[in-house]
């Protein structure tokens, strides 16, 4: 089957690839471009581990055709930090122990980034709504919700032992 050339920016850098018409963005990122930040959790759009931003919009990369990314800017967790300086959301997730196995974390952070870009001061209910497409099997969500609220406030950890 004929391949389609596609050029786009990935976390600020130019990328080019040949993709099949039915290839999804997740597979291109992971297996074509070695960006292992977004994860495969279901391939069905039900878990959110593959969440990326395409031109700032939240997208599930497993359901996004790679060919449609021509000329767009794709952002993944791999490009979230400014060099060695963590994004405030990343720092807040650390401070709040908002990850256990860490597998949902890239998607969770990306969803939170999109949420705060659209709504810098979300309520708890809005945070819950913002991550409702992302499944976490370890934490019970509360630490994640608190971390996102704290990042929005520019806050740090609640307490230490």
């Amino acid at each position: 089957m004929a391949k389609i050339p596609v050029q786009f920016r990935l976390n600020g850098s130019d990328r080019a690839a040949f993709v099949g018409p039915s290839d999804n963005l997740l597979t291109l990122l992971r297996r074509g471009l070695n960006d292992f930040g977004p994860k495969y959790g279901c391939g069905q759009g039900t878990c959110g581990t593959c969440t990326v931003l395409v031109d700032g919009d939240l997208q599930l990369s497993c359901l996004t055709l790679a060919a449609t990314c021509e000329g767009k800017h794709v952002e993944t967790v791999s490009g979230m930090a400014e060099g060695p300086v963590l994004h405030p959301l990343q720092q807040a997730f650390m401070d709040h122990f908002a990850a256990q196995c860490g597998f949902c974390t890239p998607g969770m952070l990306t969803a939170a980034k999109a949420l705060l870009a659209a709504n810098p001061n979300p309520t708890r209910a809005e945070v819950i709504d913002g991550i409702s497409g992302n499944i976490c099997r370890c934490t019970g969500y509360d630490a994640i919700i608190e971390a996102i609220l704290a990042a929005a406030r520019g806050g740090q950890a609640k307490r230490t032992y």
Binding site: F36, G37, A81, F93, M94, F97, A99, G102, T105
Partner: peptide
């Protein structure tokens, strides 16, 4: 956690 920096950076 030792593994937390890796988790939040993917």
């Amino acid at each position: 956690r030792q593994d937390m920096p890796g988790h939040v950076t993917g």
